[in-house]
């Protein structure tokens, strides 16, 4: 909590010290650079320390976890033992959870992006009766909290016999009202109507025009929508918690919480949980850092009308 207070109090100082010329001109060695960078470093520590801690904790045996300093490595490194235990426990259930998450998030995000693109393109590029009603309804869906629909969805899916199946988590993941909203804005701004007309004169069908011209022009927005949805599904907890009772169908979030809830009785679950947490945050953390520029690019273009 301390880190959250510091930037507000110190941010006034660069303003006082720096003159008009500071912006967009190299200002190495100025006092403002030192102060701003110092603040940024402190805030970075706040964001990175928990991740650093879990890296350290995953290298320790259960005894060392409680007896040695949490911010430094123990003399004996038990990382490989721990990870081997995580991967082999209960016939490799962790790998199964991981693959389930990949399935839910990968397929869900891919299809959701395609559906949102088709819908957003249709709402932007065609005049038809009921267009505003459809768009208004979907926009309302952006404001409906995901957890508000999860409970009634469970009731609905149990009547349909879908509860506790892959479909119960996958089907709701295929819909992204926010994605459709972004795709509509982006279609309006970038898909050239005269290009569509030209394709029509050449005799191309409407669906073919969307697949060849629409999807290609929309690609930057599609990357953003895909990433939003991927992270959204990967991080989702409430929906699978409500829907699934068979631990073989769990995504990684549900599985790790299952392990955590057993640490009171069996301390070795500390090792399993810290090792599992480490393994589970590696892929998405790398993806976040590598794909960061795509987030930025897509969002900027989406916000410029």
């Amino acid at each position: 909590m301390t880190a959250t207070v510091t930037p507000t109090s110190t941010s006034a100082s660069p303003a006082r010290t720096s003159a008009a010329g500071t912006r967009r001109s190299g200002s190495k060695g100025r006092p403002s650079t030192i102060i701003v960078t110092a603040v940024l470093v402190v805030v970075a520590l706040y964001f990175l320390i928990p991740v650093y801690w879990v890296v350290v904790a995953a290298t320790k045996s259960t005894e060392d976890l409680f007896s040695t300093n949490g911010f430094w490595f123990a003399p004996t490194v038990a990382l490989w033992d721990n990870l081997a235990q995580v991967l082999s426990y209960d016939n490799g259930i962790f790998i199964r959870w991981f693959l389930n998450s990949v399935l839910y998030a990968g397929i869900g995000a891919l299809l959701a992006t395609y559906f949102a693109a088709a819908g957003g393109y249709a709402l932007a590029k065609y005049e038809f009766r009921g267009r505003n009603l459809v768009f208004g309804t979907i926009l309302g869906g952006v404001l409906v909290p995901g957890t508000a629909t999860a409970l009634p969805l469970f009731l609905l899916f149990s009547q349909l016999g879908l509860a506790n199946t892959y479909w119960s988590v996958l089907l709701p993941s295929l819909v992204s009202p926010f994605g459709l909203f972004l795709c509509r804005i982006y279609s309006q701004a970038t898909v050239d109507t005269s290009l569509i007309e030209a394709a029509r004169l050449d005799g191309a069908g409407e669906l073919r025009i969307f697949h060849t011209i629409g999807l290609r022009v929309l690609t930057p927005a599609l990357v953003t929508v895909f990433l939003f949805q991927l992270v959204g599904i990967w991080n989702n907890y409430f929906l699978p918690l409500v829907m699934l009772s068979d631990s073989g169908l769990y995504p990684i979030t549900l599985g790790l919480n299952n392990w955590l809830s057993q640490v009171d009785r069996l301390p070795e679950f500390y090792e399993l949980t810290t090792g599992g947490v480490l393994l589970s945050i590696i892929p998405l953390s790398i993806a976040m850092v590598v794909l960061q520029r795509f987030w930025r690019g897509g969002l900027t273009e989406g916000s410029v009308k």
């Binding site: 970075a44 990175l48 907890y237 990684i252 790790l256 589970s280 945050i281 998405l284 953390s285 976040m288």
Partner: peptide
């Protein structure tokens, strides 16, 4: 990148 990294960590984790 450092500030954005936690967004890739699910709320439960």
């Amino acid at each position: 990148a450092a500030y954005f990294l936690p967004y890739g960590v699910p709320g439960v984790i």
